[in-house]
Design a protein around this nucleic acid. Structure first.
Length: 976
DNA sequence: CTAGGCACCTA
DNA sequence: GTAGGTGCCTAGG
C-alpha cells in the first residue's frame, strides 16, 4: 500500500510553499556512464569517441530548451577518494577503470557544461551525490522545487517533499511511487534498506544473505534500521536472526556509506546556480568541433525563435507565400510590428547589470616564458579571452608585431612585448651610423617563442578570442603562421546594433558603455614630429595602454554580447558580419597585382598633358597663377576676366569653380574653362591614382593590399582605404586606362562579376511594384520600360533622350528623389523634374506608398531595416527643415543600398567554400559594392564564371531573380 | 603641423 | 537626391 506508507512518512511540519524558482541538479558523473553504455559508439571526424558527450549535450539542450530551466547546476565527482574511504577503505574499491573510449569523454563533458555557460560543480572529498543532496536540502529550505537529473538509485533517498528525479535517458520522472517500486519502502527508508542489502558495485557490504526484498520487508516491519538491529533477537528465522546480530556493525557502517551528506561545504551558493545566457559563438563553435550538426540546428532554431529574423530560409519562405510581393509585405509588416524604444540621447555611461565592474584592475607586464605559459593556462581555463596586437604601423600587411595583450577576465590583463627597442635607439635615417651607442632592448620574450607559447590558446577551438576590429589582429597572427579561431569582434557587435548612430571605435564605446576614458594612442606615442612607433614606447607605458585595450575589449564584449541578443540582432551578426571577417581578411592579404610600369607610363602621359594645359591656361588668363587653387582660379575668372555664372560660397566667400560652373562656361565657348576642366581631370588621375598606387605596392608581396572597413558605413556597405580600390576610374576613357594596371599573375585572368541592377530589383520587391517585378522577370531593359510607362512612349519608339531621363529618375528613386536633385541631374527646371516624379508615382503608386511608409518607420523608430534585418539608424529624422528632408532621403536609400550590401556579403561568405568544394583555385581580390573581382587560373575561367554567378545569384531569394554577369580579361579594364 | 573646405573618383 | 575616400590648398594655430 504505497499511499499509506507515503502518508505515514510525510513530515510532520507542512512543506514550505514550492513557489520558488525550480532548481535542476544534474548528476554529471552518473550520466557519463549511463550514456556511454546506452548509446552506440560514435566519434568525431578526428576519431575522438563522443557518444556519451552527445547524449549529455542532447540532455542539456532538452533541459534548457524544452524545460526552460532557469536554475541548473551540473555536478561531478571529484576524485576516486572521498570521506567515506576514511572509515571504510574498501568503498568503491572494486570499480574497474573506465573503458578506453570513455576516458577522453570526461573532459569533453565538462567542456560541454562550459560551452552552455552552466555552473559546473565539484568538490574534493565529496561525491556528486553529496553535493546534490546538500543543494537539494538548501533549495528546499528556500521553498524551491528540485529536480535531480539522474537515475542513480543512491539518490532516491532524497525524493519526496518537493524533490523528484528525472531519468535523463528514459525521460521518466521518479517520484515516491517509483522509489517504492524499486526499494519497497518510502524514500526516507531507502538508506536503511540499502544498509541491509548492501551494494556489490560500490562495495557496500550490508548484511550477507539479505537482499532488497528482505530488507524492505524487515524495515517495513520494524520501522527503521536501528529498531531492527536492537530487536534482532525477536526475529523468528534463525539464520536471518544470527546474521543480523553478527553483522550489526557492518550494517551501521553500510548506512553511513549510503547516507548522503547534506551539509557539504559547497563551493558555490545555491542562489548562484543560475542559467547564464549562453555565449552562442562559443557554444556553436564547440558543437562544431564535436560535429554535432543536429544540435547546432536546434541551437540555431532556438536563436531564431528567440526573436531574431532567420536568414535566407525565412526570407524565402515569407517571399513564397502569396507570390513574393505579398510575402515581402508580410515580412515588412512583421518587422514593423516589433516594438522598440524610440531613440533617446545616449547616456555617457550605462547602468545595467551586464556591465562588468571589477573591484581591482591588474595590468601585468609579461616578460618571461613561464609567466606567459601561466597566462595561456588562464586563458584556456577562462574559455573567452580578449586580445589586441601592437604594431609599428597601421596597415597590417606592412606592419610588424611589437607586442600582444591578453585579458582573461574583466580587470585582469597582460602585455607581452616581443619586439620593443630602447626608446633612445636612433630612428632610421635620423641618427646616422651610431647604432652602437643605442641601449640594448628591454627584457622580453622573442616574438617566435611567444607565438609558439600562445598558439595552443589562439588556435584552441574551445576558447573564443575577442578583439576590437579583430580582422587586423587576425592578419597579424596569420602573417606569423597562426590561424586564430574562433573569433569575435566587439566593433562589429556594436555596428550591428548602432550602425549609423554613432562611431564604433573602442575609445568611444568605452565611454558610452562603461563610462571609461581610455588612454589614447596619441598620449602613448606622441603626435606629429615627436611621434614614435610603438616599439619605442617604454614598457610600463606600453603595458598600461595595451593591457587596457584588451581589458576594455573584454568588458565591452560582455556588454555587447547581451545587447546584440536583447536587440535581436544575433542572426545578422552571426550569419553576415562575423563570418565575413575572415573572408575579407583573406581577400586583403591576397592583394591585387598592379603593374608599376603601366602606372609610370600613364603618369608620364598625364604629366605631359598637364604641362600643355597649364601653359594654355596661364596664357588665356594673362598671368601665372596656381591652377590647382580654386581660390586663385575664381579670382582670375570672375574678378579679373569679369566672367559671370558663378556664386560665392557662403562659407568662405570664395568663388565656386566646381565642374558644373566650368562646364557652363565651356558651353558658352569660353576656352579657359574647358582647359581647366581637362587639367583637373589629369591632375586628379595622376595624383590620386597613377602616382599613388605605385607607392602602395607591397615590397614583399609585390601586390597592393587595400583595407576594407567593415563598420564604417551607415548602410552596411564596406568601404576601402589605403588605398581606396573602390573608386578606380571607369567613366572616362583616360581614367579607364588606370584599370589596365590591375593585372593577373602569369597563367591567370582577371574576372569581374557584378550584379545587374540589384538596387532597382530590391526596390521593385520591397515596394511591391508588380510592373517592375514583371519587367525584371521578363529580362527587359528596365530603363526603357519605365520610360515607356512614365512618358507614354511605346517601346519601339523609344529615344535615347527619353530613356536617359527615365534612367535618371530610376536612380533618383534609389537616392530618395527630390525635384531639386533630379532637375540638377537632368539640367532641367525643378518644376519640370517635379512633374516627371509625379508621373512616375502615378504609374507606380506602390512606390510612393512605400516611401511614405519608410519615412514614417524611420520617424517612429529612428532607424530603418534592410530585408535581412540589418538596422540602419537615421539620425536627424526627428529634426525639421532641410535636416529632416536629408534624413528622409537617407531613410529611403538605406534599406535599398543596405539590402544590396547584405546580399553581396552573403555571396562573399559562401564563395571561398564553394570554390574550394568545386576544386577551383580562383581567389577573390576585391569587392566594389555590386561587383567582385577574382584572379582565376586560365584553365578554370569557364567553371569559375559559372560557379561564381550561381553563388551570387543564389545569395538571397528576394522574389524576383538576381542576375550576375561575368567578364574576363588580362586586366580589370578588359574584364569589366 | 592640423583641420576644414573644395574638388572629384566610385557604386 | 544615397553611400564612401583621397589629394590639394589654405587658414589658423
Amino acid at each position: 500500500m504505497p499511499t499509506d506508507i507515503l502518508t505515514a512518512a510525510s513530515p510532520v511540519a507542512p512543506p514550505p510553499p514550492a513557489d520558488g524558482n525550480p532548481l535542476y541538479l544534474v548528476d554529471g558523473s552518473g550520466f557519463i556512464f549511463r550514456a556511454y553504455h546506452a548509446l552506440p559508439p560514435l566519434s568525431r571526424p578526428d576519431g575522438t569517441p563522443v557518444n556519451a558527450v552527445m547524449g549529455f549535450t542532447n540532455m542539456l539542450m532538452r533541459l534548457l530548451a524544452e524545460l526552460k530551466a532557469e536554475a541548473v547546476a551540473v555536478i561531478f565527482d571529484s576524485k576516486r577518494i572521498n570521506f567515506r574511504n576514511e572509515f571504510y577503505p574498501d568503498y568503491k574499491a572494486h570499480r574497474p577503470d573506465p573503458p578506453e573510449d570513455l576516458r577522453p569523454q570526461f573532459a569533453l563533458i565538462r567542456e560541454a557544461v562550459e560551452a552552455f555557460s552552466l555552473p559546473c560543480i565539484e568538490l574534493e572529498g565529496y561525491e556528486a551525490d553529496d553535493l546534490i543532496a546538500t543543494y537539494a536540502r538548501q533549495a528546499r529550505a528556500l521553498g524551491r522545487p528540485v529536480t535531480i537529473v539522474s537515475s542513480d538509485k543512491d539518490l532516491m533517498q532524497l525524493v519526496g517533499d518537493g524533490i523528484r528525479m528525472l531519468d535523463p535517458m528514459k525521460n521518466r520522472l521518479i517520484g515516491p511511487d517509483e522509489v517504492f517500486e524499486k526499494f519497497g519502502v518510502a524514500p526516507e527508508k531507502v538508506v536503511d534498506v540499502q544498509a541491509l542489502a548492501g551494494d556489490s558495485v560500490d562495495n557496500v557490504p550490508g548484511v550477507p544473505g539479505i537482499g532488497v526484498k528482505t530488507a524492505a520487508q524487515l524495515i517495513t516491519e520494524y520501522g527503521s534500521l536501528e529498531v531492527l538491529l536492537e530487536r534482532a533477537a525477536e526475529i523468528k528465522q534463525a539464520g536471518r536472526r544470527q546474521k543480523l546480530i553478527d553483522n550489526a556493525d557492518m550494517a551501521r557502517i553500510s548506512k553511513r556509506l549510503v547516507q548522503l551528506e547534506e551539509n557539504a561545504p559547497v563551493p558555490v551558493p545555491v542562489e548562484a546556480l543560475k542559467v547564464r545566457e549562453p555565449d552562442v559563438n562559443r557554444l556553436l563553435s564547440w558543437l562544431g568541433v564535436q560535429g554535432f550538426r543536429s544540435i547546432i540546428a536546434k541551437v540555431k532554431a532556438e536563436i531564431a525563435e528567440d526573436g531574431t529574423l532567420a536568414d535566407g530560409a525565412a526570407i524565402s519562405a515569407a517571399a513564397g507565400t502569396g507570390g513574393g510581393e505579398q510575402g515581402l509585405r508580410d515580412l515588412r509588416a512583421a518587422l514593423d510590428g516589433r516594438s522598440y524604444a524610440p531613440p533617446a540621447a545616449a547616456p555617457d555611461a550605462r547602468e545595467d547589470a551586464h556591465i562588468p565592474r571589477p573591484a581591482t584592475v591588474e595590468y601585468i607586464l609579461v616578460d618571461t616564458e613561464e609567466a606567459l605559459a601561466a597566462w595561456v593556462a588562464e586563458g584556456l581555463e577562462a574559455g573567452v579571452v580578449a586580445l589586441d596586437t601592437e604594431t609599428d604601423g597601421l596597415t597590417p600587411m606592412r606592419a610588424n608585431l611589437v607586442g600582444i595583450s591578453l585579458a582573461t577576465r574583466p580587470g585582469r590583463a597582460c602585455y607581452i612585448p616581443v619586439a620593443h627597442i630602447d626608446p633612445s635607439t636612433p630612428k632610421d635615417g635620423a641618427g646616422g651610423l651610431d647604432f652602437g651607442d643605442a641601449a640594448p632592448p628591454p627584457r622580453q620574450i622573442q616574438a617566435a617563442r611567444a607565438l609558439e607559447i600562445l598558439r595552443p590558446l589562439l588556435e584552441h577551438p574551445g576558447v573564443l578570442k575577442v578583439g576590437h576590429n579583430i580582422k587586423f589582429d587576425w592578419q597579424m597572427f596569420a602573417k606569423n603562421g597562426i590561424k586564430v579561431d574562433p573569433i569575435d569582434d566587439t566593433m562589429l557587435r556594436s555596428y550591428v546594433i548602432g550602425g549609423g548612430r554613432h562611431g564604433h571605435g573602442m575609445d568611444e564605446l568605452a565611454q558610452r558603455h562603461l563610462g571609461i576614458t581610455c588612454i589614447t594612442y596619441d598620449e602613448v606615442t606622441g603626435t606629429g614630429k615627436a611621434r614614435v612607433t610603438f616599439d619605442r614606447v617604454p614598457l610600463d607605458k606600453a603595458t598600461s595602454y595595451a593591457a587596457e585595450d584588451a581589458d576594455i575589449t573584454l568588458r565591452l564584449w560582455h556588454v555587447l554580447r547581451h545587447d546584440v541578443l536583447a536587440d535581436r540582432m544575433v542572426t545578422v551578426y552571426e550569419t553576415i558580419d562575423r563570418p565575413l571577417i575572415r573572408v575579407v581578411a583573406d581577400m586583403e592579404m591576397e592583394g591585387v597585382l598592379v603593374d608599376r610600369q603601366v602606372l609610370r607610363e600613364l603618369s608620364s602621359d598625364f604629366a605631359k598633358k598637364m604641362v600643355e594645359f597649364e601653359a594654355d591656361i596661364q596664357k588665356l588668363a594673362g598671368r601665372e597663377f596656381n591652377v590647382g587653387s580654386p581660390k586663385q582660379l575664381g579670382e582670375i575668372l570672375f574678378d579679373e576676366m569679369k566672367l559671370s555664372g558663378s556664386k560665392k560660397s557662403s562659407k568662405t566667400g570664395a568663388w565656386s569653380t566646381d565642374s558644373s560652373v566650368l562646364e557652363e562656361l565651356a558651353d558658352l565657348g569660353i576656352p579657359i574653362a574647358q582647359k581647366v576642366l581637362d587639367w583637373r581631370q589629369f591632375q586628379k588621375l595622376k595624383s590620386t591614382y597613377t602616382d599613388t598606387l605605385g607607392e602602395q605596392i607591397n615590397p614583399v608581396t609585390g601586390r597592393v593590399h587595400t583595407s576594407f572597413a567593415l563598420a564604417a558605413t551607415s548602410t552596411g556597405r564596406l568601404s576601402s582605404t589605403d588605398p581606396n580600390l573602390q573608386n578606380i576610374p571607369i567613366r572616362t576613357e583616360e581614367g579607364r586606362k588606370i584599370r589596365r594596371a590591375f593585372v593577373a599573375a602569369p597563367g591567370h585572368r582577371i574576372m569581374s562579376v557584378d550584379y545587374s541592377q540589384i538596387e532597382l530589383r530590391i526596390v521593385a520587391e520591397m515596394a511591391g511594384i508588380p510592373a517592375l517585378q514583371q519587367a525584371f522577370r521578363d529580362g527587359i531593359d528596365i530603363h526603357a520600360m519605365t520610360a515607356s510607362q512614365v512618358f507614354n512612349v511605346p517601346l519601339d519608339q523609344m529615344t535615347s533622350e527619353i530613356r536617359r531621363r527615365a534612367k535618371a529618375i530610376n536612380f533618383g528613386i534609389i537616392y530618395g528623389i527630390s525635384s531639386f536633385g533630379l532637375s540638377r541631374q537632368l539640367g532641367i527646371a525643378p518644376g519640370e523634374a517635379g512633374a516627371f516624379i509625379k508621373a512616375y508615382f502615378e504609374r507606380f503608386p506602390e512606390l510612393q506608398a512605400y516611401m511614405e511608409k519608410t519615412k514614417a518607420e524611420a520617424r517612429e523608430h529612428g532607424f530603418v531595416r534592410t530585408l535581412l534585418g540589418r538596422k540602419c539608424w537615421i539620425p536627424g529624422i526627428q529634426e525639421k527643415g532641410a535636416r529632416k528632408a536629408y534624413a528622409e532621403r537617407q531613410a529611403i536609400n538605406a534599406p535599398i543600398q543596405g539590402t544590396a550590401a547584405d546580399i553581396i556579403k552573403r555571396a562573399m561568405i559562401r564563395l571561398p567554400g564553394a570554390l574550394a568544394d568545386a576544386g577551383l583555385k580562383a581567389r577573390m581580390l576585391l569587392q566594389v559594392h555590386d561587383e567582385l573581382l577574382f584572379e582565376v587560373p586560365d584553365a578554370e575561367v569557364e567553371a569559375t564564371s559559372t560557379l561564381v554567378r550561381a553563388v551570387m545569384e543564389g545569395a538571397a531569394d528576394i522574389g524576383i531573380p538576381l542576375v550576375a554577369e561575368a567578364g574576363t580579361g588580362a586586366s580589370w579594364a578588359e574584364a569589366h
